[in-house]
Design a protein around this nucleic acid. Structure first.
Lengths: 215, 215
DNA sequence: ACCGCTATACCACGATTAGGGTATCGGGGC
DNA sequence: GCCCCGATACCCTAATCGTGGTATAGCGGT
C-alpha cells in the first residue's frame, strides 16, 4: 500500500483527488489539507510515500512546503499538482526537491499512472515540463561564460594575485609579508587595481572581484 | 523534410542508423561521420535540423562537439545516442546543450519517434534519464544550502541587511544615509557582525559572506 | 638606445575603520 | 514589573587605508 498526503486549497479539487485516490486499489489516502503550514509535523506523523502538492495556497507556498519537507525527509516522493506551467515555477519546484510535475489539466487521466511511475523512480511530468527543465538547466549553466564576456579589466598577473589575496580577506600587512614585498608596494598595486576596476575601497574591489569571477 | 547529421564511430551502428533513417519518409539523411572534429564546418554546410551524436568517439567527444555546435547554432536539435547511462554523462550532455538523450539499447524501437518528438519541442529520453536530470539538478542546487550546514552565525535581520550592503561594496557613510541611521549605529552593527563571523575587517566579512552564501 | 610597462619602494596627509566603552529605548519572555 | 536583547547613538584612540607624488630597476619591443 502506498500512503499519500494531499495539499490543495481548492476544496472541490481536493475532494475530487480524495475520491479518485480512495477508489484506487493499492493507494492509501492518509490525509488531505487545504494548506501546508504544518506540513513537517504531518509528514512526520503520517510518514507518506507520496505527497501531492499544489503550489498556490494560502499560508506557505507549495514550493516552500517542498523545501521544508526535504529538511526532514529525503525519501518521500513529491508530485506538484498545479496550474502553473511557466518555467520558473517548474525549475523552482524541481530545485526545491519535487519528484514530478503534473498540470491540473492532466490530472484526471494521468494521476494514478503518475503515482505508479514515481514509486518506480520515474519522474512523472506533463508534456512540456521536461523541456522546461532542460532549457532551464541549460540557461542556468551557460550564463557564467556569457557574463564575463562584457568585462576585461586587463589586470597584470601580480595585480590578480594581490586581488586574490584581498578576496581572501587579507589586509595589506599580511599580504606584504606573505608575498615578501613592502607594504607600500602592495599599496601601489592596489592603487592600480582600483583604477582598473573603477573602485575606491577594498570592499568594493572584493565584491566586484567575486561577483564577476575575477578570482 | 527533416535534415539529419549522424556522428557515430562504430561503423556497423552508423550504417544501421543510415539505413533506418534512409528508409523513413520525411527524414533526409544529410551525412554520417565517424568523428566530430570538423563538426562546425559540417553543421554550417549541411544546416541540419537534427544531429544524432555519440559520446565516445576518437578525436573530440560528443559532449565537446555539442558545445562547439552551440557556439554557432542554437536551433539545431541534438539527440545523444550513447551507451553511457551514468548521471554525469547525462548532466554534462544536457548542460552542453543536448536536446535529448537516448541509450543505444532503445534506439531500434524509439529513434524515429524520438526525432518526431524533438521536432515538436519535446525532449526524447530513455527511461531513467529524466530522473537523472532531476536528481542532478537537485544535487547541483542543494549543496550550497548543505555547505553552510556547518555554519550558522545567527545574524539578526538588521545585521544581515548591513552585511548585504557591505557586500555590495558600500562604505559606512553611504550605508548610514541609505538606511537613514547614524554612522555610529552602522559601526555598532558591524562590530557585532565581526564578532559573530569571527573576522576583523570589512574585506574579510565580505569575503566570508559571499563565499558562504550569507548574502 | 629609447620607450613603455610592470614591479618594486618610500613619504606624507587626511579619511576611514577597528576596538574599546557607555547609554537610551522598545519589545518579548519570565 | 523586571530583565534581556536588538536597534539606536555617541565618544575616544590607535591602526589601517586611500590618495597623491616620486623614484629605481628590469624586461620586451622598435
Amino acid at each position: 500500500m502506498t500512503g499519500i498526503l494531499i495539499y490543495e486549497d481548492n476544496n472541490s479539487l481536493r475532494e475530487s483527488l480524495v475520491s479518485l485516490l480512495t477508489l484506487t486499489p493499492d493507494l492509501l489516502l492518509l490525509g488531505a489539507f487545504p494548506r501546508a503550514d504544518d506540513i513537517i509535523q504531518q509528514v512526520e506523523h503520517f510518514k507518506p510515500e507520496v505527497i501531492l502538492m499544489d503550489i498556490d495556497m494560502p499560508g506557505i507556498t507549495g514550493i516552500e512546503a517542498v523545501q521544508k519537507v526535504r529538511t526532514v525527509d529525503k525519501q518521500v516522493h513529491i508530485i506538484m499538482i498545479t496550474v502553473f506551467d511557466d518555467s520558473k515555477s517548474v525549475l523552482d519546484a524541481i530545485c526545491a526537491g519535487a519528484s514530478g510535475y503534473l498540470l491540473k489539466k492532466h490530472i484526471s487521466d494521468r494521476l494514478t499512472d503518475a503515482i505508479q511511475q514515481v514509486m518506480h523512480g520515474e519522474p512523472p511530468m506533463s508534456p512540456g515540463i521536461a523541456r522546461m527543465i532542460i532549457t532551464g538547466v541549460q540557461t542556468m549553466t551557460s550564463p557564467p561564460p556569457a557574463a564575463n564576456g562584457a568585462a576585461d579589466y586587463k589586470l597584470s598577473t601580480r595585480e590578480q594575485e594581490i586581488l586574490a589575496h584581498l578576496a581572501k580577506g587579507q589586509g595589506l600587512k599580511a599580504m606584504a609579508s606573505e608575498l615578501s614585498i613592502s607594504i607600500d608596494t602592495v599599496r601601489t598595486h592596489i592603487k592600480k587595481i582600483y583604477e582598473k576596476l573603477q573602485v575606491h575601497t577594498q570592499t568594493e574591489a572584493v565584491s566586484k572581484a567575486i561577483n564577476e569571477r575575477l578570482v
